[in-house]
């Protein structure tokens, strides 16, 4: 029997219920380090619920989740984040009343365990400024560094959130619909950022998406959920041409 503790992430027989309504039923899969795994499926099939369960924001009815050999079933969300499971949210999990810079500061402070007084030390401030500057330059948000985040466009909010995700230095990134509400021209930028996160910075990613083209271009493997159950799993080229996928999205 395969040793689940050697997998980067192992999910076994996951059942999630919200109230009396079952949302996810008997979901099992493994992820290796450095993979990009896409999760697709029709609306309401449980994709975001899966991310919520993995990140600790939803209790599980049943199942086992093992992350880097550690059982995280009873681990709270903020502890999972400290262990390296970082996520984005469907509606851009950015603090809209704080500036762009402050949004990134929160992530870096935690990731690098800066002392609480770091803002009063010129050494830490210079390092923080340089890191933020470099990160914002990458996504063309440097001119908006001191802008309140709530004034950014939808696409810019996504870029800010992904940048913050990168600076959180997590090992496993759960990315929820990164292209939702984003102009086509920005999608290639997002794709480039995610690829860089995994290939250059060594992260592993699970991406929930509706844009199949976007996802098939970057994912190493794809899981298809239908009605809360795992319907298909495979590499993008197999899934793309599978008649069952076409039936799910386009009907008979």
């Amino acid at each position: 029997m395969e040793d689940k503790t050697k997998q980067f992430l192992s999910v076994e027989h996951l059942h999630v219920r919200i109230g009396k309504r079952p949302i996810l039923h008997d979901i099992s899969f493994e992820i290796q380090k450095g993979e990009i795994v896409g999760v697709i499926g029709p609306n309401g099939c449980g994709k975001t619920t899966l991310l919520n369960a993995l990140s600790g924001f939803l209790p599980l009815e049943e199942g086992i989740i093992t992350f880097q050999g550690k059982d995280i079933m009873d681990v709270e969300a903020y502890v999972r984040a400290r262990l390296g499971i970082n996520r984005s949210f469907q509606h851009a999990g950015v603090f809209r009343d704080m500036t762009v810079e402050e949004n990134l500061m929160i992530a870096i402070e935690r990731a690098e365990q800066c002392p609480w007084w770091w803002a009063f030390s010129s050494r830490y401030r210079k390092k923080m400024d340089a890191e933020i500057r470099e990160a914002l330059e990458d996504v063309d948000l440097l001119p908006h560094k001191n802008l309140i985040a709530g004034l950014l466009s939808g696409g810019q909010l996504r870029l800010l959130e992904l940048t913050r995700l990168r600076l959180s230095k997590g090992n496993l990134l759960l990315i929820d619909e990164p292209t939702a509400g984003v102009a086509p021209i920005l999608k290639s930028k997002l794709s480039e950022i995610i690829r860089k996160l995994v290939k250059e910075h060594g992260h592993t990613a699970i991406i929930v998406e509706h844009d199949l083209k976007f996802l098939f271009d970057i994912a190493d493997r794809v899981i298809v959920l239908v009605d809360g159950e795992k319907y298909l799993e495979g590499i993008p080229s197999e899934i793309r041409n599978d008649e069952r996928l076409k039936k799910v999205y386009f009907g008979e």
Partner: peptide, 29 residues
């Protein structure tokens, strides 16, 4: 003044907006 310019101050501001987002960053809201 010191608190507002520290990591605690930023966490307090973030707490007002969303405890979920704050927890997702590893800060115990």
């Amino acid at each position: 003044y010191i608190v507002l310019h520290s990591s605690l101050g930023r966490s307090l501001q973030a707490h007002k907006e969303s405890k979920t987002f704050l927890d997702s960053l590893g800060v115990h809201s």
